[in-house]
Amino acid sequence: MLHNKKEWISGYFFILPSLILLIVLVFYPLFMTFIYSFYDMSLVSTRYLGWEAYQKLFQNPMFSLIFKNSLTWTILVVFFQCLLGLGSALVLKQTFIGNTFLRGLVILPWVMPGVIAGMAWRLIYHPQLGLLNHYLQVLGIVDQPLTWLSSPTMALYAVILAAIWKGFPFSTIMYLAGLQGVPLELYEAAEIDGANETSKFFHVTLPSMRPVIIVTLLLTFIWTFNYFELVYVMTGGGPAESSHIFPTYIYDLAFKRFRFGDASRFAVVDFLFLLIFSLFYVRLSFKSEESA
């Protein structure tokens, strides 16, 4: 018992530095954001609104747009990153000349700074002078140049494509590691049962990779939901505020329009949504794990 107590104390001693930093630098500011969210705050004035503030938020047409955009953005990016990640992991698992080299290359988009990726994609998307439209036209896929970032209906999707490119290597490396963890015996057993490649994939590979996929999906979901740089650099939320997502709109409200109260409310909703989502997600995946 005494030994245990000593053990406890040393445990607290070990985690103390990070705990203090976390409380001071993360949870205290987060708490302040909750407080600010009940106020109408600008550079020059502060007014208490109480719950009325949130009523106003939910009536704000921008709120539903941002929520819709954020969901579209996150779901599409995560889905395609997962798909592309799995696909590229399967390719990279094979042996072919240049495999190691390609493995090194694949990670580059994920490693490059987001603002730079955003600027590069802006060049690619230039409607008349960009290479993407040029190649699409040369290949005869489109006959009119697409307006990518220039149209309110397309801008968000154009950034989504860039975001898929930027982030999919993370899924690739996770799934590649996952693939290498699948016990070979399982494949051998499946082969004996006469399984072909497709059924091996669905009956051996995927089930064995379940934990990796579950975690990767959650991580990419959270990161993507809060990813700021690409939208900020590529469209700035435009045209006509059509491509804003939570983090960019929060930043815009706070540091371009100085509406700190509004910014805080959006931030609180962002946080609560992700919290509830993650809880449900973890719950569900545990449950299905038990039943499986």
Partner: peptide
């Protein structure tokens, strides 16, 4: 939460 959420405080 997004970093934007704590940037004002």
């Amino acid at each position: 939460f997004p970093l934007a959420a704590i940037i004002v405080p």
